[in-house]
C-alpha cells in the first residue's frame, strides 16, 4: 500500500516538475497568433480582470505548469494569449491531473478570489477542450517596482541580469524556508536585485522539488552572481515569483 502510494506521489511529482527541467528551454512557443475567439459564455481576460471578487467566472485557458497533485486536487498555473489565471486547488482526479500537461486547453468555471494579493480562481470545475498554447516568457525586469507589474500577475515571465544578494545576515545565498528554518526539500528563498531594489524570489517545492535543475541551481548560487530567471509571477503580500529556471551568467 505504501509503495503504491509512494509511486503515485512520485509520478505526480515528476509530472508536476515539467516546468522545472532547467536544462531545456522551459518555453516552446507554438503560436504567437492572437487569442482564438472565446466560446459562448466564456470571459475574455479583460472581463475576468474586471470581474468582482467572489463572483462566478468562466474562462478558457491553457495549462502552463502545475504543483503536485494531492488529495484530489491540483494547483495550476494557466495562461492564454491575453493573460494568466491561477487555479488554486482545482478538484481533479489523478487521471485527469496527468492529462493536464503544459499546453492543454481547459474551460474552467469557478469563483474569483484573492489571498494575500494573489488573485486566483477557486472552487473550480473544468473540462478539457481542443487546443494548445504554451506561453513565451515575458520579460518583466524593467517593470519590477512599477505599478504595471501586477498586470502580469501569474504570467510566465523572465527576469534578466539580476544580482544575487545575501539572503540573511550570515551571507547565505539562499535559505530553506523564509528564515532558514527548513531543510533540503523545502521551499528555497533567495534575494535578487536590480536598479538598487532587492526582491525575494522563491523556488516553490510543490512546483519544482529538490530533484529539479532549478532547485540545484539555486543551491549553487553565490552572492554576487548575475542571473537570468524564468518563472511564474506569483503574489504574496507583493511580488513573489515562483522561479522555474535560473541561469548564472
Amino acid at each position: 500500500m505504501k509503495k503504491r502510494l509512494a509511486l503515485l506521489l512520485a509520478t505526480a511529482m515528476v509530472l508536476g516538475m515539467t516546468a522545472c527541467t532547467g536544462t531545456e528551454p522551459t518555453t516552446t512557443p507554438e503560436t504567437k497568433t492572437e487569442a482564438p475567439a472565446k466560446s459562448e459564455g466564456v470571459m475574455t481576460h479583460d472581463e475576468y480582470i474586471a470581474a468582482a471578487l467572489e463572483s462566478k467566472v468562466v474562462v478558457e485557458t491553457y495549462v502552463q505548469a502545475k504543483q503536485s497533485w494531492w488529495d484530489g486536487k491540483g494547483t495550476f498555473y494557466t495562461q492564454d494569449q491575453d493573460g494568466a489565471y491561477f487555479l488554486y486547488e482545482m478538484p481533479c482526479s489523478e487521471e485527469d491531473y496527468n492529462k493536464l500537461v503544459p499546453g492543454t486547453k481547459i474551460k474552467v468555471t469557478g469563483y474569483k478570489a484573492e489571498w494575500s494579493g494573489e488573485v486566483e480562481i477557486i472552487d473550480t470545475t473544468f473540462e478539457i477542450e481542443d487546443g494548445k498554447y504554451i506561453a513565451e516568457a515575458y520579460d518583466v525586469t524593467s517593470l519590477l517596482g512599477s505599478d504595471d507589474l501586477i498586470k502580469h500577475q501569474n504570467e510566465f515571465v523572465s527576469f534578466k541580469g539580476m544580482k544575487v544578494e545575501a539572503a540573511d545576515d550570515n551571507g547565505a545565498a539562499y535559505l530553506y524556508k523564509w528564515d532558514g528554518s527548513g531543510s533540503d526539500g523545502d521551499d528555497l528563498y533567495f534575494k535578487v536585485s536590480t536598479g538598487g531594489t532587492t526582491y525575494t524570489f522563491t523556488v516553490e517545492s510543490y512546483l519544482c522539488d529538490k530533484t529539479t535543475d532549478v532547485y540545484s541551481a539555486v543551491k549553487n548560487l553565490k552572492v554576487g552572481d548575475t542571473v537570468d530567471m524564468e518563472g511564474f509571477l506569483y503574489w504574496y503580500e507583493g511580488v513573489n515569483p515562483h522561479i522555474t529556471s535560473v541561469t548564472v551568467k
Partner: peptide, 16 residues
C-alpha cells in the same frame, strides 16, 4: 515569509 500555498495544501491534505 511564511509558506503560503503549501500550508494550505497540507491543511487540506491532512483532512483526507
Amino acid at each position: 515569509m511564511r509558506k503560503m500555498i503549501g500550508l494550505r495544501i497540507l491543511t487540506a491534505s491532512a483532512i483526507l
